[in-house]
């Protein structure tokens, strides 16, 4: 199941674990990324808390935790090469895997059509 947030994150949900990244739209808006900071595995976040930081040449931005959950995996590849987020934001440029406290909470997120409408 693929879901989106108004903060421009995408979630690919398999069982109770969501792989989370930022959308192509977000990556394009941010511009060339030069730094990514990811959370530590095992950390729990509430929905809306800042879970990661991305920095372009010009600015820092936060990536918010899209739902309540615990970090169960991170993508070290984007820390080593932040440009991967720009080149493949919805694939190899994923950020972290989140074990959802309540998998049903994902139902309230945007589906792809609604997200596309949001950024149109």
């Amino acid at each position: 199941m693929l879901k989106f947030t108004e903060e421009h994150e995408w979630l690919k949900i398999e069982g109770d674990v969501a792989t989370v990244g930022i959308t192509r739209h977000a990556a394009d808006q941010l511009g060339d990324l030069v730094f990514v900071e990811l959370p530590e595995e095992g950390t729990s976040f509430d929905k809306g808390a800042s879970a990661a930081t991305v920095e372009s040449v010009k600015a820092a931005s936060d990536v918010y935790c899209p739902l309540d959950g615990e970090i169960v995996g991170i993508n070290q590849a984007i820390v080593d090469d932040p440009a991967l987020v720009n080149s493949d934001p919805e694939g190899a440029g994923w950020f972290f895997k989140l074990k959802l406290s309540d998998p049903s909470s994902a139902n309230a997120l945007l589906d792809e059509a609604a997200y596309k409408e949001l950024i149109a």
Partner: peptide
């Protein structure tokens, strides 16, 4: 939280 540290970040605005 972010904001503060960021202050400098300024550019965030571009978004």
């Amino acid at each position: 939280r972010i904001v503060e540290p960021a202050r400098g970040l300024s550019r965030r605005q571009t978004w």
